[in-house]
Nucleic acid binder design. Structure first.
Lengths: 337, 337
DNA sequence: AATGATTGCGCAAACCTTTGCATAATAAAA
DNA sequence: TTTTATTATGCAAAGGTTTGCGCAATCATT
């Protein structure tokens, strides 16, 4: 590493004290216009940029850095969130530090500690599905680290969060299938420990309840990993036994597995099988026919999360909460009148 | 922010000097076992963690943070790279700071400056397609920031890089199509300024040359954005005029657009039209039939890039270069014997 | 008992800033 | 001219660490 110019280099070269230079650079205090311009000139010449470490240390003020913890980053929805966060943060002069929790609360905790060690100004956290994640959230609170939780919020009453309305999203999707006249609507959900999945499940149930129809537990499967293969096999299993007329999957990936099976078996989508996925990932448009799905605007969620975080950094007691409305993107994978 | 325990809190509570505590915590210098254990105990009690700002400042040694610059993050290949980088870096006790260049060299430059301001130990850069990106690379070199460039490398002779063999990847893909007996093999490439695209184009040409076939420029289109719509329209245009027998697209996304058109027109893939994409993204498996594509192992590239960076951080003169072999993933979108 | 070697610890400087306070220089008022 | 107010600058401490050097205490050697 090449040595960077310090404030002292400037003051030396002008026979000024470092304090004067500092004040001029920060524009506070009194100084003459003449010295001001000379300082600025030399600063530019030496390509001076303040040592952010020293600044933070001295001001005892956090770094202009925000920490972000996501379960994983090569995942359509999460990377959209990250994208939103970065877009806004760079506009606000903040840098972003990122870590993956892999849905493990212990790694999550390590990350929080590391962020804290590096004096981030605040943390945006998409909690792991692990129950102990709740402890990590109170940990941040206790340490007084501004934070906003995104996507999975548990029963957070007193902190900031930004989330998507999974309940309504699922409800509307299933309702749509019901309204199109589909019968025997199956569900491929996630593991029980996943609160998101559970919430969508509630939406699924609510739709049936609204229509006065009992749900059939034979038409409900749980995927451990929401990947294509699981979608394929779980649907296969369900279809061979119960021939559902439609299926709602908790992710587009799972739906993609359904499509593969349907193709193999010459099941016509949407005539013989209605399919709705979740996330509005790029996958949906590639599928044939195009997938009806529930949109989650990760980008915007990220942007809002960051703005909430910044507000909280400036005014620690200021907590905000927002639940994004869900939107059903109707394409070709289920009948529509 | 709650006040964190400092080394002074420990020394005070034990009537020791700061220096002794520091030495014990760092395990260097002389001290008695008795004081050692008492210090350690108090440190744990107070939940002491060193102030990384102060450490970096004092040691005049960069933060244990690496900076990563990618064109965009919600993109299958780049987020895989990021994933690889993070996995390794966390293992090595490094945090990662991330920024998006949006393929603009000016933003790239800002990010490099910001990283430098925050004293990252090194930078992994996937350069923008902008020509001036080269300046940014020399800038890092001049400032003595350890760096490795990933994916797009220009003619970097003297620095570290990790890249994918785009030439061979394209060559093998097109060769495969030729060997399967396809004729009139079209290409949808990217804009001319994109070196990656150009390199794949070279591979395309080389395959024809090897077979002694002249290339037909009517079968070559350039997409500005490699999204689905462009793939659709460019292929439509090409097909209406020249009816290619196969098509090689520079990304899976573009291929997905080709599929949509083929479906509309009842063109049978792979019988009437062979298709090969690039990247081995999740899309490929969702397409019907499944897409033959060229695999890029972003994850592994990220891991290697990080290990090269760490080597270079420890030994600044140590530069390493690796070109990952490409691998054709043969699926169903082209005939195979 | 006197010397030397070893061990355990403290002092203070340094890393680069910011900032309250003091001082010097200038201008305005008496 | 002297006093007062104003303006421009400097001094030094502080923020949390690390580390070279030095000092004192202990132990081993004669």
């Amino acid at each position: 590493m090449k040595k960077r110019a310090t404030i002292k280099d400037i003051s030396d070269s002008l026979n000024l004290s470092i304090s004067t230079v500092s004040r001029i650079l920060n524009g506070k205090g009194e100084f003459s216009e003449a010295t001001r311009s000379s300082v600025l000139q030399v600063a530019k010449m030496l390509d001076y940029r303040a040592n952010s470490l020293a600044v933070s240390l001295r001001k005892n003020v956090p770094n202009k850095v925000v920490g972000v913890i996501l379960p994983q980053v090569n995942h359509y929805f999460f990377s959209s969130i990250l994208n939103g966060i970065m877009t806004s943060s760079h506009n606000q002069g903040y840098m972003v530090m990122i870590g993956e929790s892999l849905d493990r609360s212990d790694l999550e905790k390590d990350l929080i500690n590391n962020f804290s060690d590096h004096f981030v100004a605040g943390i945006i956290l998409a909690p792991s599905q692990d129950k102990r994640s709740a402890e990590n959230i109170v940990k941040m609170e206790n340490e007084g680290i501004p934070n906003v939780v995104i996507d999975r919020t548990y029963q957070r009453i007193n902190g900031s969060f930004v989330k998507h309305d999974d309940f309504k999203g699922a409800f509307n999707a299933v309702m749509h299938l019901l309204n199109q006249g589909y019968e025997k609507i199956g569900l491929i959900k996630g593991p029980d420990r996943c609160t998101i999945s559970q919430t969508r499940f509630e939406g699924y149930k609510k739709a049936f309840e609204e229509k006065g129809i009992k749900i059939n537990s034979d038409l409900i499967e749980s995927a451990n990993h929401t990947d294509k293969e699981e979608g394929y096999f779980l649907f296969k299993k369900m279809y061979e036994k119960n021939k559902p007329g439609a299926i709602f999957t908790i992710t587009d990936m799972l739906a993609s597995g359904v499509f593969t099976y349907a193709h193999e078996q010459n099941i016509n989508i949407p005539k013989d099988l209605g399919v709705i996925g979740y996330s509005n990932s790029q996958l949906g448009q590639a599928l044939q026919p195009k997938l009806t799905t529930v949109n989650q605007n990760g980008q915007e969620m990220g942007e809002v999360a960051l703005s909430y975080l910044l507000e909280q950094i400036n005014e620690p007691t200021l907590k905000r909460q927002l639940t994004f409305d869900s939107e059903l993107i109707i394409r070709e994978s289920c009948l529509s009148s």
